[in-house]
């Protein structure tokens, strides 16, 4: 049943929710932690906290599924959430924000500073977008079209994140904030790595809070995949050089130079840690 309020709707199922979204111009309200910062907030909200479909955390053989309205705290408390995701979530803001902020909201806000989105990039997660005409699954990298520009239709909602289970075990996560808590990322790095019988089977890195969109370059990472460790060592400088060109930082409270230098330092450190 939908509770209809002045300036807001509280649906209790995904079907109700999508029906409302299709008919009206409503701002989805997930955790509210980005939305509520604005002083002059007009319009009407579509509250997502009572929709069971958006709160589910489940798995199958190949994938983990996180409902978009799961809060950071709910995921931190879930046995299914992988360590790399928890590493990032545990450093978001502070407890009160983690208790309300959701992954769907974090992604949907469209910022390259979104700490959970960085993990979804590096893990090659896909987003389930639900709309009045059905669902579609979009790789997160394709979902971000530019700064605050998303591949999302007016009738659609981010309903779930699908994260492949493979390659999650060996990871690196680094966040640079202005302090240890309550910090917005000034730079963040995530990497995944796997090797089998001396050959690199997987390598993925992503850089957050550097450009308009989180940087994830599979084409560059493929320079290392399939190589033996000695071969990878030989290719290391070319790999780093490729990222040096690929990373074009924007300037904010910290300079573009700082961002670039630190990104490359963290990339090199990641390779060191992985034995390259």
């Amino acid at each position: 049943m939908v509770t209809i309020l002045a300036n807001g709707f509280v649906p209790e199922s995904l079907a109700e929710c999508l029906e409302l979204k299709a008919k009206r111009s409503l701002t989805p309200y997930a955790g509210g932690t980005d939305l509520m910062i604005e002083e002059d907030r007009g319009g009407q909200y579509l509250f997502l906290h009572k929709i069971p479909e958006l709160k589910r955390i489940r798995e199958d053989d190949d994938n983990l599924y996180f409902g978009a309205a799961c809060t950071f705290t709910e995921l931190l408390e879930s046995a299914l959430a992988p360590a790399i995701l928890k590493a990032a979530l545990s450093r978001i803001a502070a407890p009160a924000i983690r208790n309300t902020g959701t992954i769907g909201g974090n992604i949907g806000n469209g910022s390259a500073k979104a700490d959970s989105a960085l993990i979804f990039f590096v893990t090659d997660s896909a987003l389930k977008l639900s709309g009045s005409k059905g669902e579609r699954l979009v790789p997160i990298q394709d979902f971000y079209l530019g700064r605050k520009k998303l591949d999302l239709q007016p009738d659609e909602l981010i309903s779930e994140v699908r994260m492949p289970k493979k390659w999650l075990s060996k990871y690196d996560y680094q966040k640079i904030g202005a302090r240890k808590s309550l910090a917005i990322s000034r730079l963040s790095f995530a990497g995944l790595f796997a090797e089998e019988n001396g050959a690199i089977t997987h390598c993925a890195v992503a850089f957050g809070a550097v450009s308009d969109v989180i940087i994830r370059r599979k084409d560059l990472d493929s320079l290392l995949i399939g190589k033996t460790i000695p071969d990878a060592k030989a290719a290391k400088s070319a790999y780093i050089k490729a990222y040096e060109e690929a990373i074009v930082p924007i300037r904010g409270r910290v300079s573009a130079e700082y961002r670039k230098e630190t990104c490359l330092n963290l990339l090199k450190d990641f390779l060191n840690k992985m034995g390259i």
């Binding site: 509770t3 509280v10 309200y29 509520m36 910062i37 407890p95 009160a96 924000i97």
Partner: peptide, 28 residues
Amino acid sequence: EGECGACSVILDGRLVNSCMTAMGRVAG
């Protein structure tokens, strides 16, 4: 702006910033 915690309240057993919470979220 959710940055200081002075407005903290407990919502369904969890600490939240009341400045970052819209009334519709509190329904029920």
